[in-house]
């Protein structure tokens, strides 16, 4: 009962601040709304007993990524400018995203596989995101390929940044 109330509280907080990210005119306020939204997501993870994911969410996204966003926003001095909230492309994109979301929800409710799988498992279910061990095992067995691909992507991005930001003196063709 109380966890239901908490769920609704944090769900409203998450979605509300996510809306604020998009609608806010001030970029710094947007970034801070994103921060609140991420903390809300972490709280939802806690309600799901996925403490590890919650901590990682706060540590990586709320702690570092949004701080970098803020850093860039301040460095580029773009805050305070009036941003037009809705352009034509924005409306098309959001309509597309909404359609995708509805589609996903519909397939999800039609199949209802989550409900059956949890009730079917009579033995103890260890949430993947709860303990370090379960999480690590899943990461290095079931999801090994996605992890490798994501790691590779990040490596490429990092190399790209290094190439872009490094000045190559005496190498005309690289420029």
């Amino acid at each position: 009962m109380s966890s239901d109330i908490l769920f609704y509280l944090f769900a409203v907080l998450t979605t509300g601040s996510a809306l604020a990210v998009v609608l806010n005119k001030n970029t710094v306020a947007s970034a801070l709304s994103l921060l609140i939204s991420l903390v809300g997501v972490a709280a939802l993870f806690v309600l799901l007993d996925a403490f590890l994911l919650a901590a990682l969410m706060v540590f990586v996204y709320a702690g570092a990524v949004v701080a970098l966003f803020l850093f860039i926003v301040m460095l580029l001095d773009t805050y305070g400018g009036d941003r037009k909230p809705f352009k034509k492309a924005t409306i098309v994109a959001s309509a597309f995203a909404l359609a995708l979301l509805v589609l996903g929800l519909m397939t999800f409710t039609r199949r209802g596989s989550l409900e059956t799988s949890v009730s079917a498992a009579t033995t103890e279910v260890v949430p993947v995101g709860a303990s370090l061990r379960a999480y690590g095992e899943q990461l290095f067995t079931t999801y090994l390929l996605p992890v490798q691909i994501v790691g590779f992507l990040l490596l490429i991005a990092m190399l790209g940044v290094i190439v872009l930001s490094k000045k190559f003196e005496g190498l005309e063709d690289v420029k």
Partner: peptide, 12 residues
Amino acid sequence: LAVFAVSSLGVY
């Protein structure tokens, strides 16, 4: 991890 996570919010 919890200590690291929460204290990293101090930067804001």
